[in-house]
Structures are given as structure tokens and as C-alpha cells.
Design a protein around this nucleic acid. Sequence first.
DNA 1: CTAATTGCAAAAGTTTTGCAGGACT
DNA 2: AGTCCTGCAAAACTTTTGCAATTAG
Lengths: 136, 136
Amino acid sequence: MSDLLERLRGRGWRMTSQRRVVAEVLAGDHVHLTADEVHALAVQRLPEISRATVYNALGELVLLGEVIEVSTDGRAKRYDPNAHHPHQHLVCSQCGTVRDVHPTGNLLADLPAEERFGFTVSQVEITYRGLCPTCA
Amino acid sequence: MSDLLERLRGRGWRMTSQRRVVAEVLAGDHVHLTADEVHALAVQRLPEISRATVYNALGELVLLGEVIEVSTDGRAKRYDPNAHHPHQHLVCSQCGTVRDVHPTGNLLADLPAEERFGFTVSQVEITYRGLCPTCA
DNA sequence: CTAATTGCAAAAGTTTTGCAGGACT
DNA sequence: AGTCCTGCAAAACTTTTGCAATTAG
């Protein structure tokens, strides 16, 4: 299993069967599910779970910094539980599939102060776009 | 004005009054409008233009590579006509505002072949996220 | 016990679609 | 003339919301 659940418990996240199922479904590597996919999987384990609850849980996990929201420019956002291992995304422009890729040594993408226009930069996101083997 | 219209004409893009208005509204630097904003501005010049037509035009401009689609993780996608000047985006996580920022000399974000998993990478996108001066 | 969470169902926001009529080249 | 484009209105999708009932701590 993943330590996602343990981390959440440790952080005092009020645990309910619904939330547990959402966290379980999400746990793992290379997981990039849409809210609807999370709901579909959750329903298999807990038939009465509602979409609204899934959205609530996902929103909180993002707020807590335990899950990353990935916009694939396609339709729905995807949720990535791999928040504690810095990585980038490789996104298929055709089907929206996402793959994690890892920092490759010399990765320089800092934004100098004079280019920040008063913004507080808290995150740098690098996305590689192209076609996956299946769509190419 | 911008040369966006000229480029489009040169590429044989069938020109109609609606398309012209969309291209005109979009032209300029630091423009990052949502489809709805484009429609609102277009209506001022051409009252009967429909949302569907705006979406059609925007979709084609993106296909043509003349406009870039920016997902702000917020609600609607934004459209950036500055496609011929390589740049990155600074996005406010709160209000969705987008600012263009420019390559800062040493920007290394290439993905080595062994990290491509069979994908054909055609674009590297760097987004800085944080809070804009107003939201901070 | 108390405050937080859930489910439902309806609404809101964004984008797409089908098709008849109209416009561009 | 022929093909492509437009407008309308409805539908499809994704996400949010309000509120009564339920549940965790």
C-alpha cells in the first residue's frame, strides 16, 4: 500500500469510509485519474459514494498538498498522488494520457526576480507535450 | 496592428467578418482572453456573432499554430496569440491572470530520449505558478 | 455531543454538436 | 457553383452548491 493514508491520518484528516476509498483508489505511482475515474473506481468498493464527495475529497487533498492537479488541456483535470516525489509530466496531446518523468540532472528553470512582476512564485511546472506511442 | 491577420490570409485561411473580428480582438501582446471574453469583445464589433463561431475560430487558430491554448487550472482556457515569440507563463493560482515572461538565457529543460517512453515530444511548456500582486 | 461530512438533486460554467441557411472564393 | 462557415438552440461534460440527514472524534 501507500503511505498516503498514513500521512493523512497523521495530519489529522478526519477519516470516513468515503475518504478512505478515495485515498486508496488514488494511491500508487503513475496514477493520473480524472475525478470521474476516481468516482467510478470508488463506487466499486463503496457503491453509494457520490460524485460530490469525491470532488470534496480531491479538493482537500490538493489543498493539503498531498495530491497534484494536472490540467491536460483536454477535458477533465487529472489527480496525481505522487506529490512528494518531484517530477514532470509527459502529456499526449491526442488522448490526454499522462506519464511521470523525472528531473534529468541539469534542469534550470528559475525565474529571476526582475521577471516576476510582483508575483510570488511558488511552483514551476514543466510539461512535455507530444504524442504517445499508441496515438502516433 | 498585428500581422496575425496577414499571416492568416497568407496561409489561405478563409476569411469572414466573424473570423476577422476574432483575430482582431485577439491580436496584441500580453493578451490571454477566455473564449467568453473573446466573444464579448467580438460582439461589440459584430453584434450577431455567436459563441459557437468564436469557438470554431479559436479551435482552428490553435490547430494552425497561430494561437496557444493556456490552461490556467482555473475555469476556462485562455487563448494567447503570441505564438511566434517563445515565452513562458506566469499564472496566478487565485484569479487565473496570466503574464508572459521571456526565456532567461539558460533554460534547460530537454527530455533525454531514454525518458520519453516512446512519446514524440513536440513542445516543452514551462509555467510558473503563484500569486499575483493583487491577490497576494 | 458537536462540528464536520455525506448524498442528492439541481444549477452553474464551459465547450460541442446538428443542421438549415448564408457567405466566401 | 460548390464548399465551407455561421447561427441557433439543445446537449454534453465537468464541477459546484444548498441543505437535511448522518457520522467521526
